[in-house]
């Protein structure tokens, strides 16, 4: 991200606006779905799915991960692995 030509950044700005629109729409959708009172399992799955899409948009476009250097992706992959291990921890009591 060191070379920023004027055009490139203007293109970025247009992307940011569309991402914002998508995030706002997804927020409304996830709230609307919550009023449908789905079964707990389905509600969790849908809400987390929508949140994951929103999160990915933020990370990919606002945080520029889509065009980020390899080393940062490697560090994040490593972190993600340990993050998942940490989230699996509640399972330990049950097996």
């Amino acid at each position: 991200m060191s070379e920023h030509s004027q055009e490139e950044i203007s293109k970025h700005v247009r992307t940011y606006i569309s991402v914002f629109a998508a995030l706002a729409a997804l927020t409304i959708i996830t709230v609307a779905i919550s009023y449908l009172h789905l079964s707990t399992g389905l509600a969790i799955a849908v809400a987390l799915f929508v949140a994951t899409i929103k999160g990915s948009l933020v990370v990919a476009y606002f945080m520029h991960l889509i065009s980020e250097a390899k080393i940062i992706r490697y560090i994040l992959i490593l972190t993600a692995i340990f993050f998942l291990v940490l989230l699996l921890l509640p399972a330990i009591g049950h097996f």
Partner: peptide
Amino acid sequence: SFVVWAHHMFLTNMGTKM
């Protein structure tokens, strides 16, 4: 070293698979 921590907790009634 991130996936061995529970060997400190064998006596906490965890299941045999774990």
